[in-house]
């Protein structure tokens, strides 16, 4: 009985209500972001910019973030967490090198290493030399000042330049795309890792990681790895998180409608002219939203037809809007209809 009571009535404009219910508190969002000095944590986009990012279905979040939980046997140990973090953190040659000097005459590249960065990344010059040799097939040697000299098997200066840039960008350690991992401790004293990148597929394979509780704020990453259903939940979670952070209470069901609308077509679509609005069937609906001329001209060129069935078109026309009281029509019994026609005919 109670359940029946809480059901939405037929013809209720749930989309409109959802839009207003999210839009109105959205006007109260603070654009200012608080910084906590000295805290070892990653800065994430929050508030209105993040909300826009989610709804626009951006391919990559401006501040990607992963929260990696460890298996119980690892979670209590800071050392083990730290070990995992260093395993995850991306280290590229440019991160541990000060600069690359190309010697075109002798066809070699001198890499000046940053001793401090090297120490922080827990690597040795010979280790790097080995990695580069393996990856690029170039001869690498360590100098007295513990710098690297690379001899690529190419001739032309342009190729050498190309080689040096590629080497500088090459991944020496860590997981591709995982960014920088930081160890944090939660209230229960368990250690976990937050990271400024995304690659849940690779990280889930790591032995010490609790694969089930891995979290990412990259909706497309979730979509790629787990599919639309998961992406829909990811959108919902991110929306809830963003709004809650701002101290705004929006009913989850409104957000569910948004998440559903974004994923109903089998992939993640944005809310806007490139996404679900642009995919609307009605010409007038699209023209009323954005790029009016483009839609009208295309409609004319391709002879499109508009059924005039949605809200926007009917407002334009001055007809009853098919929501609420306008969604019901009077059904006339067959003989009554004939009778009416007869009257008209006379």
């Amino acid at each position: 009985m109670k359940n029946e009571q809480y059901k939405v009535h037929p013809g209720e404009p749930v989309g409109m209500i959802a839009a207003e219910s999210i839009g109105e508190p959205g006007t109260q969002m603070i654009l200012r972001i608080f910084h906590f000095a000295g805290l070892a944590s990653t800065m994430t986009t929050t508030g209105l910019p993040r909300l826009i990012e989610i709804l626009d279905a951006r391919k990559e979040p401006t501040t990607p973030q992963m929260i990696i939980r460890l298996k119980e046997s690892y979670a209590k140990s800071f050392e083990k967490a730290l070990e995992l973090a260093s395993k995850i953190t991306e280290v590229r040659l440019r991160d541990v090198a000060k600069r690359a000097v190309e010697d075109f005459q002798n066809k070699r590249v001198l890499i000046v290493l940053d001793k401090q960065a090297l120490k922080a990344a827990d690597m040795t010059p010979s280790q790097i030399a080995g990695l580069v040799e393996k990856k690029f097939g170039a001869k690498a040697s360590v100098t007295k000042e513990s710098n690297l000299i690379l001899k690529p098997n190419v001739e032309k200066p342009s190729e050498i330049r190309n080689f040096s840039t590629r080497v500088m960008h090459s991944l020496l350690k860590g997981i591709e795309g995982a960014g920088k991992a930081i160890v944090s401790q939660d209230k229960n004293g368990e250690f976990y890792i937050t990271s400024t990148g995304n690659n849940i597929e690779a990280i889930m394979k790591l032995e010490s990681v609790d694969a089930q509780s891995i979290y990412t704020n990259d909706i497309f990453e979730v979509y790629r790895v787990f599919g639309v259903e998961a992406a829909r939940n990811a959108i919902l979670n991110e929306l809830v998180r963003t709004l809650e952070e701002q101290g705004l209470t929006v009913d989850k069901r409104h957000l569910k409608i948004v998440a559903d609308a974004m994923t109903a077509q089998g992939d993640v679509k944005s809310i806007g002219r490139h996404g679900i609005v642009g995919a609307k069937e009605s010409v007038f609906s699209r023209a009323a939203f954005e790029e009016t001329v483009k839609h009208l001209v295309n409609a004319a060129a391709f002879g499109e037809q508009d059924d005039m069935m949605d809200v926007a078109e009917n407002i334009l026309l001055g007809k009853l809007v098919p929501v609420g009281t306008g969604s019901v029509k009077l059904k006339v019994a067959g003989d009554a209809k004939q009778k009416k026609q007869k009257e008209k005919g006379e």
Binding site: G11, P13, M16, I17, V311, I315, L320, V321, V323, G326
Partner: peptide
Amino acid sequence: EKDVLVGHGASLLLKDRLLDQSDK
């Protein structure tokens, strides 16, 4: 204001404002 009426499902009132009392 239009959003309010659509949100309430008040189709006929919306038609009254936007058509009957306007540019019918």
